[in-house]
């Protein structure tokens, strides 16, 4: 696998505030790479460093195997990006905006191919309306069209579904999947919502307060072996004592009136049988995958929480 993005010990501080701290990660060719973190975690700062909008304080960034700062021009030719809300030129039409940015990428596209691009994002019928008349979703889609107009190999989307209605979110999601599957693009997409990322990404990175929490394939992070079973019982204390004999300690945790057990999903019936045979009544059983738990923990608490330990 060829790495498209390689970030090494990247740091950025504004005055005394460390926005990004010692961050390293890799995005491979063909990845839909989810970049997760709550608002203010340092996602945008990282993405802006990938696009040379912000200069890193230290660390290195390589794109397509080349150092970013030294090969800025040739690298940026192969990158398309939507950064936060793309506002574009409000006093120009969708078509004019797209044409303008195509020209800025050094392209002279025919009317047909520009219209085709607008069609991909579903804006062909509004191509000559001024952008100021567009809804947020339409602007977002136009922003993506602008990012795609020069047919880049790497597409960076910063919170592409922010402020969109449910249908808009689905449209963008489908578009990302199509770009990856049909056109083989490498896509880095950031979000503060796990639910979005887990549906489309094959790999992901979670950052918190500028630091990496976890990086890995979604498959492994969503592995059934890593499922958390949440149960409510008639006697949690006794249940934990029993479970400790059956499972090792670090996988069992008491949370208020629930017990969280990290185990393979398929073992759930054994768990239930084991407890009922020991005269413990079970009121409820819930499955939660570990990724979601990571994330909920992060967004709930202000401190850096290690999952599954107190």
């Amino acid at each position: 696998m060829t790495p498209i993005i390689e970030v090494n010990q990247l740091c950025k501080s504004f005055d005394r505030f460390n926005a990004v701290n010692n961050l390293s990660f890799t995005v491979n060719k063909g990845d839909i790479f989810g970049f997760l973190g709550e608002n203010g975690a340092g996602k945008s700062t990282t993405i802006r460093m990938l696009l040379t909008l912000i200069q890193p304080t230290s660390g290195s960034i390589q794109l397509f195997g080349e150092a970013l700062q030294q090969n800025r021009k040739s690298i940026l030719q192969r990158v398309g990006a939507v950064i936060e809300k793309p506002d574009l030129y409000k006093y120009l039409s969708a078509y004019e905006n797209l044409n303008l940015f195509a020209k800025m990428s050094g392209l002279k596209l025919s009317k047909d191919s520009l219209m085709k691009q607008l069609d991909i994002v579903g804006l062909a019928n509004r191509s000559h309306s001024k952008v100021k008349t567009f809804s947020q979703g339409m602007k977002q889609r136009l922003g993506i069209a602008v990012a795609l107009v020069h047919d880049p190999q790497l597409i960076i989307l910063d919170e592409p579904t922010n402020g969109l209605d449910p249908q808009g979110i689905v449209d963008i999601r489908n578009l990302i999947i199509r770009l990856s599957q049909e056109r083989g693009k490498t896509i880095l997409v950031s979000s503060h919502l796990l639910s979005e990322i887990e549906l489309i990404a094959n790999r992901l990175l979670i950052i918190h307060k500028g630091e990496k929490v976890v990086e890995g394939s979604v498959k492994s992070l969503l592995d059934p072996a890593e499922t958390i079973i949440k149960i409510e019982t008639s006697d949690n204390q006794f249940a934990i004592q029993l479970l400790n004999k059956w499972k090792s300690n670090e996988n069992i945790e008491r949370k208020e009136n629930e017990i969280h057990i990290k185990m393979h999903k398929n073992d759930t019936p054994f768990l239930i049988r084991f407890l009922t045979e020991n005269n413990i009544d079970i009121f409820s059983v819930k499955h939660v995958n570990s990724l979601e738990d990571y994330f909920l923990n992060l967004t709930k608490s202000d401190t850096h929480v290690q999952p599954f330990t107190n």
Binding site: L51, R72, Q77, P86, D87, M104
Partner: peptide, 10 residues
């Protein structure tokens, strides 16, 4: 918000 777009052009 177009400055960041312009500056990511080559």
């Amino acid at each position: 918000g177009t400055l960041r777009l312009m500056l990511t052009k080559p």
